[in-house]
Write a protein that binds this DNA or RNA. Structure first.
Lengths: 193, 193, 193, 193
DNA sequence: TATGAATGAGGATTCATTCAT
DNA sequence: GATGAATGAATCCTCATTCAT
């Protein structure tokens, strides 16, 4: 599998650095190749085209969020606790990697509709897990029975996303993780039964 | 004042159509000029450069949201009622113009950091009005006293934005306006005292 | 005659200022019109096109050189004295108008071949007068009999021109007029019998 | 070193031909690329921008003049002989390449101030060698002791330049090289002791 | 005469991708 | 697998000139 080859990872990491430090529109393939320490042409042995690099970057980084959330969902806890852990986990991953937020919240959003559609398909795996928590909460009677799952999830993700983007745009100057309890409280109030 | 000249408006409207129908990266100045029924050079009598067109488009369209919200804020009603009207107004404006959502939710987000920074400055006028409603609600005892205004606003705007984007990406197939009551209920639960 | 109309002169003078202060390639017709205090379109009531303005500027300014030289040539003096006066006169005119040198020595030389050809035609009136002095000198036995008039004139004009250009490029910092005696000596040695 | 790559030279030579045959303002990069037999983009692997091409053209061609003059200066001859050889060499180089004079005397002079400044810096290498000959002549007692070196050089270069330009503008119809002895005589008379 | 809004042709440059080595 | 020189399509903006008023 291509993802296991060392150069694949090398190029992905280089792309994150180049995009974060130069911005989406200044992240030329040649710059990524240089950062990765390979020739321009080598990129095309591992990626179909530039679009493929960008999508792979998102996929690679999103996997961290998804894997952690999967662990949370699989635990034997209440939906409210899972919601809380989810928010904390999301903010924790962003806090741990300065480049990540710049890339996911600002730069990759400048990509064109086609790339964004593929990014959304990847994001769906994450959103589905949030839905799962919400369904668990409804079934357990923790969350309101007549709640629109999709809407609730859009509220949760929209809020987390907006807060994260705001934090990135403020140069990550404040403690994002410290906001988790207040975000949790706000969101829980909206959905609890 | 330039905005009162008919051609200024003509070009703005042409830009919205061209961007919505061709996409951000295929919205060439010459295409906008043709759509507006003017010569390419005429564009530059009304706009400094292409960036200026895009920012002006956002400014012009955002003004509709802001003006309507200002009216709502100025009314003699409870903060909860204003929140409700705000959500309805937001969805109403989006519903009334098929092109608008494509431009604000999808296409203009592909613009570079400089344009986005200017877009955010315009957006701030809208966010400030939401903050105003929240402050009014807290002062009147309708909303929780210890509520973080900024966080609550990020929750509200993040949710509305996410719902709207989702509606646009689903080709505006369902009735966005019909979602307003449920969105209102969800958000109000999160902040009411 | 168009040259006697006040606006004609107004535009010529404006052109000299605009060219000197902005450079040839930044001397747009609209800038000249603004400096002259007329509308863009008005320019075209007095000049056929932009080229015509530039040529007229050269013609107008060159007339000063030519008229003064004509007076010198018509005097009852030796050719050597006339040569001396000519050099002094040339440097004097340049010294008297700071803008003139910038326009004639640097900026107008950036014009295209067609304009330069017309400029050369105007210059010919000046060169012919130099030839006249040289012929007088040869006839009077002051200058070498076997001298090639055209070559001698090219030497004289080439030297004066090179010295003047050098003075302009050194920001007219030194006293050009003070060089006249040495230039005269150098050139006279080359041609005297 | 870039100058040793065949394509660098290819492009320089193509630029000379295109400029000479089409004129400075009609010498588009794409035309130069086509003449050089390379793609437009290839130009930019060897030159920073169009300005860089033009300056490089002048530099490359001026090197011929400078190298030949350096050889002359280094010889064990009198300053007068060197002056004579210099004039002959200058006219010889111009005579050998029909395109060269058009480019150096007419077309490149239409370039803007920035390019001209860089061209003048290159030209300085040539002028310095003329100064060297003059200093040698003064020291050896061949040229006048109280002579102003700079002025004498301006006279020499101004004359050669004027004669050459005149020859180019007359479509190189007469024998430029045949003028060398008379030019030499004229200039030598001006400076010899 | 005078105005000035409108016109529209024209070109340098970037960069994702290829392919001979 | 790896290289990197070469490709070439694609677009924003300027400004001389016109002409309806």
């Amino acid at each position: 599998m291509r993802k296991e080859k060392p150069k694949y990872k090398q190029i992905i990491d280089a792309a994150v650095i180049v995009i974060a430090e130069n911005g989406y529109h200044q992240a030329q393939v040649s710059k990524i190749a240089k950062q990765a320490g390979v020739a321009d042409g080598t990129i095309y042995l591992y990626f179909k085209n530039k679009e493929d690099i960008l999508i792979s970057v998102f996929e690679d980084k999103m996997a961290v969020f998804i894997n952690r959330l999967q662990v949370i969902v699989d635990r034997n806890e209440t939906a409210s606790e899972k919601l809380q852990k989810m928010i904390e986990s999301h903010f924790k991953v962003q806090t741990d990697n300065k480049h990540l937020g710049i890339v996911t919240q600002l730069e990759l959003r400048q990509s064109n509709i086609e790339v964004r559609a593929k990014i959304n398909a990847i994001l769906k795996g994450y959103l589905d897990l949030i839905d799962e928590i919400l369904r668990q909460g409804v079934n357990a009677g923790d969350f309101r029975a007549n709640m629109d799952i999709r809407l609730a999830r859009q509220c949760i993700f929209g809020t987390i996303d907006e807060v994260t983007t705001s934090w990135v745009m403020k140069d990550q100057k404040f403690d994002l993780l410290a906001l988790a309890p207040k975000v949790y409280e706000l969101l829980l109030n909206g959905i609890k039964s």
